[in-house]
Write a protein that binds this DNA or RNA. Structure first.
Length: 839
RNA sequence: GGGCGAGUGGCGGAACGGUAGACGCGCCGGCUUUAGGAGCCGGUGUCGCAAGACGUGCGAGUUCGAAUCUCGCCUCGCCCACCA
């Protein structure tokens, strides 16, 4: 450089992300900047974002989901913590199989290609994923341990095989877990086809053993909606089980579950589910034809028809009677499909006076309705069931219990039942066991061999993994494709060596993802599913982020896995993650969920090519609260790009900027000293605010504050401050604060300003409260709560002085119109409110 | 039907019960530039020339003071849905 710096922003130094972003990513990768080390003595921090299904392309939603935790991970790293932020792929599953069938390639080939592509896309984001820990659940080195866990659960009785009516998707030709059936019309979560019920022998995990513990969220920080979803899903109800004897000799009484033992005197009939085992026993000969017909019809009906609330009640009398244990009345026994076989005992005592469903049934079939609970004051409503949950009800027509408060009667009647042996307090859950077997090819084979003599025998550990054979015709037929592979199918019984047959169902992918966070702790360990030392060092996860749509599936299952494996002695903690946060969902521009079929998918790549990855990251984090998401709308991307361009220019003031006289703005803006102080104040308030916002995952407001600091720096430059120390410090701070959000430009500017590599290894700055404080403040002055004036005072102005100044204000005087104020309220440093006399 | 959440400028959105609309987009005006772009300065809730008045889905209430708290209603979103 000789003389005469050209006009500002010479062409050669325009902000051009493409010229440096890739360079830095390569260097970070080569230096292993993000590799989490097991021997690092600094405090650990495990930050995890849910791994994707390798569908083929990252869409903008993946970027949105990953950038948030990446910022937090980078922040903690700069704070001197040993951060693990891994990534992998949930690579088993139906879409791979379906896509492979469509394209006539093997699912493994399709999956592998997609992972390559998506890994490259993830890398282009500049996220600090530790790729040395990458895993894929379809890798034998991974599913070997998924199978090992299955064997542990099986040996402990937590995995079992049982025949039950299950939801079947006729399109995908596979059973579904209850959680995978969605909506009022009971459709398959994947393809939308209404499901049908089938009686099938399936594998289950005994998650209901843990229902109570799963309801306990103490010690973990989960979003309230997720806690509610899980709590409702588990659906714990307390009440009593009551035995109703029948008149049939040598037949066990009918046991029912009720949450309202206080209404026992009002039970005027009983209803059994059509599937109830006592139906065939109790039905009288004259009623048998009608009953059989009803049972057959009910079995044929789909879940949809059966569960519909709108539907009028149906049912038939089976000819038998039971005895109400309280009133000793003979009450008729009916069957009806509104009583579900899987909940409670599959039988109810019907109390039409106090249950809407029973009331509707009683009305339709002209059965007696007895009210046995009444409001303390007022009448029992006529023509409807009286639900009365206000706590202000008493029992009536209930023998010795009449006059007792209803809430007390629950305990009293339960006690009486226990004393007479006719019942006892009981708890029931809506949650069922977890159905894990699938009749498809692309999943982990269930490691079981069936022996004629020994039944279901687990494959010994040293024979794992049970490899998925590659040469299989995997077109869906409704039975597992593995059944057609004769060589694979036969295996000797591990117990006796006699010829046996392998289990041909595979595990649902949700099983794979119930433990992947453990594998990240020691992903290459060939001896164990995880190294106990490393798991103890890294777990539990400190921050787990992902979509709320996993609320009652993955997020319940992974908690179950940790608790079960703890009880089997493999883990020594209770919860997989201490803190869970859900990001919002980025919808298509048409406000619909992004999907290839709708054609509303936004690919990130073209945006990255045009603006650079920093701009895309910052834009995504700026569009709104991170937990909210919203429809895709790229207007505003230019604004973010412009902002980073301004950062670029402000961080590299030209010779002319530095030479520019401070005098330029002095008369308007104040002395050079005042300007410097203002810039320092802006710098330090920004440090405090941005740190707080990053930690709280409030990225949009963090960016707003970073923009404000940028604006202050630009104003300082225009006012001739570019050569000052305050200016240099402000720019340095801005670059460091930007590093988690926009890692490339931060690194590039860091180098250009002559600092040693790397900005990402800088300590996080601390705000100096003394420098952040201002010596004058502007106080709003209200009259009766309405803003009327503003006072500029020094921070140490005494309250009496502030009050005097406020009352002296012309604006205040006008509203007082000569009267003395009734009160003056001061919130020190915040405002003054003058209250006028009434009238 | 039940539970939860949300309704703020033209738009995305800010706002410990204390100056509503931060920050950005868009738009308007100006400076700079050979031009384009970029950059810089200013303006931008509504009505009003102004003083001022009115403004956070609607209606009440609590409070010196309410977008924020309470109650009722409307709209939208999510979860559950004949669970005894």
């Amino acid at each position: 450089m000789t003389t005469g710096t050209p006009a500002r922003a010479p062409r050669a130094n325009r902000f051009h992300p493409a010229s440096f972003e890739q360079k830095w990513r390569d260097r970070w990768e080569a230096d292993g900047l993000y590799t989490a080390r097991d021997d690092d003595p600094r405090p650990k921090r495990y930050i995890l974002t849910m791994y994707p299904y390798p569908s083929g392309e990252l869409h903008i939603g993946h970027w949105y989901a990953a950038t948030g935790p990446d910022i937090v991970a980078r922040l903690h790293r700069m704070r001197g913590e040993n951060v693990m932020f891994p990534m992998g792929f949930d690579s088993f599953g139906l879409p791979a199989e379906n896509a492979a069938i469509d394209r006539n390639i093997h699912p493994a080939t399709w999956t592998k290609a997609n992972i390559e592509r998506m890994r490259a896309q993830f890398r282009s984001m500049g996220t600090m994923f530790d790729w040395s820990r990458e895993l894929a659940t379809s890798d034998p080195d991974y599913y070997r341990w998924t199978q090992w866990i299955f064997v542990q659960l099986f040996s402990a009785g937590l995995a079992y095989r049982a025949k039950a009516p299950v939801d079947w998707c006729p399109t995908d030709k596979v059973v579904l877990a209850r959680e995978q059936v969605e909506g009022t019309n009971r459709h398959c979560w994947r393809c939308g086809t209404p499901v049908v019920k089938r009686d099938l022998e399936q594998w289950w995990f005994r998650i209901t053993n843990y229902s109570d513990e799963l309801l306990d969220f103490s010690g973990v920080d989960y979003p309230e909606p997720i806690r509610l979803m899980q709590t409702n899903w588990i659906g714990r109800s307390t009440g009593a089980e009551v035995d109703f004897p029948t008149e049939a000799p040598d037949v066990a009484p009918i046991r029912v579950f009720t949450t309202r033992p206080d209404t026992l005197f009002g039970a005027t009939f009983m209803v059994l589910a059509p599937e109830h085992p006592l139906v065939s026993v109790l039905t009288t000969e004259d009623r048998r034809a009608d009953v059989d017909e009803y049972v057959t019809t009910a079995r044929r009906e789909t879940e949809i028809e059966r569960m519909s609330t709108e539907r009028p009640k149906t049912g038939v009398f089976i000819g038998a009677h039971a005895i109400n244990p309280m009133t000793k009345e003979r009450i008729p026994i009916w069957i009806a499909d509104y009583v579900l076989p899987g909940y409670g005992t599959g039988a109810i005592m019907a109390v039409p006076g106090h249950d809407e469903r029973d009331f509707a049934f009683a009305q339709k079939f002209d059965l007696p309705i007895h009210y046995v609970v009444a409001p303390v004051s007022g009448e029992v409503p006529d023509g409807e069931a009286f639900l009365g949950h206000s706590g202000d009800e008493v029992l009536v027509d209930s023998g010795e219990f009449s006059g007792m408060r209803a809430d007390q009667a629950i305990a009293a009647i339960t006690k009486t039942l226990e004393e007479s042996g006719e019942g006892h307090a009981a708890v029931t859950y809506r949650q069922r066991d977890w159905l894990v077997s699938r009749q498809r090819y692309w999943g982990a084979p269930i490691p079981i061999i069936y022996c004629e003599e020994h039944g279901a025998v687990p494959v010994p550990e040293d024979q794992l993994p049970v490899l998925l054979p590659e040469d299989v015709d995997f077109a869906p037929t409704g039975v597992s494709p593995l059944q057609s592979h004769a060589d694979w199918l036969t295996a000797p019984c591990p117990t006796c060596g006699a010829p046996g047959r392998r289990e041909t169902d595979t595990l649902d992918t949700v099983v794979d993802s119930s433990w992947y966070f453990l594998r990240y702790c020691a992903p290459r360990n060939a001896e164990h599913a995880w190294d106990p030392e490393q798991v103890a060092a890294w777990m539990p996860i400190d921050l787990y982020t992902g979509g709320a749509e996993h609320g009652v599936m993955h997020l319940l299952y992974f908690r179950f896995f940790v608790k079960a494996l703890r009880d089997l002695g493999h883990l020594n903690f209770d919860e997989p993650t201490l803190k869970l946060r859900n990001q919002g969902q980025i919808l298509g521009a048409d406000h619909n969920r992004m999907s290839k079929s709708r054609g509303n998918v936004q690919a990130p790549d073209e945006l990255v090519d045009r603006y650079g990855s920093d701009t895309v990251r910052a834009f995504l984090m700026f569009i709104g609260p991170w937990d909210q998401g919203g429809p895709w709308n790229p207007s505003g991307m230019e604004g973010i790009h412009r902002w980073l361009g301004r950062v670029w220019g402000a961080a590299q003031p030209t010779h002319r900027d530095v030479q520019r006289a401070t005098a330029t703005g002095s008369e308007v803006l104040g002395s050079a000293e005042e300007l410097e102080r203002a810039l320092r104040r802006a710098t330090h308030t920004t440090i405090a605010a941005v740190t707080e916002d990053y930690e709280a995952l409030h990225f949009n407001t963090a960016i707003a504050k970073l923009m404000e600091l940028t604006n202050a720096i630009v104003r300082a430059r225009e006012a001739g401050q570019a050569g000052s120390q305050a200016y240099a410090d402000a720019v340095t701070t801005l670059i460091v604060l930007l590093a988690p959000l926009t890692p490339h430009i931060a690194e590039e500017l860091w180098e250009r300003r002559g600092h040693p590599y790397s900005v990402h290894q800088q300590p996080w700055p601390e705000a100096d409260p003394a420098l952040a404080a201002s010596d004058t403040i502007e106080l709003p002055v209200q009259v009766d709560g309405k803003l009327r004036d503003r006072l500029v005072v020094t921070v140490d102005t005494p309250a009496e002085e502030v009050e005097r100044m406020a009352l002296a204000s012309d604006h205040v005087q006008r509203y007082l119109s000569g009267r003395a104020p009734m009160r003056v309220i001061q919130i020190p440093g915040r405002l003054v409110n003058v209250v006028t006399p009434k009238g």
